[in-house]
Nucleic acid binder design. Structure first.
Lengths: 190, 190
DNA sequence: GTCTATATAGGGATAGAC
DNA sequence: GTCTATCCCTATATAGAC
């Protein structure tokens, strides 16, 4: 977040990629596109990243960092029941993160299949396997009522849909939108 | 839906494409992949469709048909307030449609950027412009409280997320899942 | 309606100079 | 750290025979 005045080239590449990948999609964004916007050439990118997928991976890991923090917090609780009880709190934190990282979330929403290929990357597997499996286990916990688990799944989409459709609510700012989403999602758990 | 015993080649191509586009993504699915699965060659596809994008367009229009029906129903009401009041009912119908067309919905969820390119297609513009604008207008109606509009947006994502994460709830079938989602989403409007 | 063969283009990636 | 030049591959799409 701390955008230093003197930003490293690597950082600038990531910023540009985030923008282009989000707007035009990962597959339709060529390295040439990124290089052009950066004011350099394709080959230069290869000094900083070993492949196109590597750029995407780096961006993906940013979201990983966010998710990991939340899941760790959830992991502090032992039983599924306790975790389900903590969920509303976690979701609230999640809402804040989405608000603070809208473009990053949008990138993930619109490039799901491109992101899936990263699963075969070694570097990603390590970071991911825990997290994803942990998440799956949570949603399949037999000691949480199905109704509750379904609501957990729903809340996820509700947050993203509510926060990212924000362009339509021209009349309100992010803070207000966040508050509304928080309230709406809160009602899913009562 | 009516899968006739003697299915036209065109229909089979669409079915295969739906499957491959959904699983591997539109961009990473080549016409060769489709042709192979069909037991024929690339060139043969061009007899039935004028381009790859045209195949995607055809699939997209199937979802259009569903959306149009729902929006028309909503359009029967005059004011934003009345429409907001009718929303829960519409959403319930939407849930049924998602349940009945899971793969089609998944296709759209995972290929958002590919689908965006269709907006430049003539054939699509006509069918789409009405619908999309109508939808945008609904979510920006000044006579509907913002809180309600945000909830409408949230409900959308909640349905999709709830219904499509269904693979995780191995212990319940579609009907039960549908019922739970219906209840959860219903709570967004009280 | 389906084939073979081919045109054409664009993308990712590498080599090697500077 | 960045450039030029180039390799190589795969993809869409078309032409024209059967």
């Amino acid at each position: 977040m701390a955008t230093t005045a003197k930003e490293s080239t690597r950082e600038r590449i990531l910023d540009i990629a985030l923008e282009l990948f989000t707007e035009h999609g990962y597959d339709k964004t060529s390295l040439r596109d990124i290089a052009e916007r950066l004011g350099t050439t394709k080959a230069a990118l290869y000094y900083h990243f070993k492949s196109k997928a590597d750029i995407l991976l780096e961006l993906h890991l940013r979201l990983h960092d966010i998710g990991r923090v939340l899941l760790e917090e959830l992991d502090a609780y032992q039983t599924g029941v306790e975790r389900a009880a903590a969920w509303p709190t976690i979701i609230n934190r999640f809402i804040d993160e989405v608000a603070a990282n809208r473009e990053l979330v949008a990138l993930h929403q619109r490039n799901q299949n491109a992101l899936e290929d990263l699963h075969n990357s070694e570097r990603h597997r390590a970071a991911n396997e825990d997290m994803e499996q942990q998440f799956r286990r949570l949603l399949s916990s037999p000691d949480i009522p199905v109704a509750t688990r379904v609501r957990m799944a729903c809340s996820f989409g509700a947050v993203i849909s509510g926060m990212l459709t924000g362009d339509l609510f021209v009349d309100i700012d992010t803070d207000e939108l966040t508050a509304h989403v928080r309230q709406a999602v809160g009602d899913l758990f009562r």
